Amino acid sequence: MERYVDGFVMPISNEKVDAYREMATEAGELWVKHGALQYFEGVGDDMEPDMGEMSMVTFPQLTETGDDETVVFSFIVFESREHRDEVNAKVMEDPAMDPENYEEEMPFDMERMAYGGFKSIVSYEA
Rank of each mutant, 00 (worst) to 15 (best):
M1S: 14
E2T: 14
R3A: 05
R3C: 09
Y4Q: 11
V5A: 12
V5I: 14
D6N: 09
G7D: 01
F8Q: 06
S13T: 05
E15Q: 14
K16Q: 12
A19S: 15
Y20P: 05
Y20A: 13
Y20F: 15
M23R: 15
M23P: 06
A24Q: 06
A24E: 11
A24W: 07
E26N: 12
G28S: 01
E29H: 13
E29R: 14
W31K: 05
W31D: 08
W31V: 02
V32Y: 07
K33T: 11
H34P: 03
G35R: 12
A36R: 07
Q38E: 11
Y39A: 08
G42A: 15
V43L: 11
D45T: 07
G52E: 05
G52N: 07
G52D: 00
M54E: 10
M56D: 00
V57R: 06
L62T: 03
E64V: 00
T65Q: 09
E69M: 01
I76W: 04
V77I: 10
F78I: 00
R81L: 13
R84V: 06
R84D: 02
E86G: 04
V87M: 12
V87P: 05
V87W: 05
V87D: 08
V87Y: 08
V87S: 07
K90T: 06
V91H: 12
M92H: 09
M92L: 14
E93V: 09
E93C: 01
D94S: 00
P95C: 01
M97Y: 05
M97I: 02
D98Q: 00
E100T: 11
E103Q: 12
E103I: 13
P107A: 02
F108C: 04
F108L: 03
F108I: 02
D109W: 01
E111I: 00
R112K: 15
Y115L: 08
G116R: 08
K119T: 10
K119N: 03
S120Q: 11
I121Q: 02
V122S: 10
V122L: 10
V122F: 15
S123C: 02
S123E: 14
A126N: 12
A126S: 04
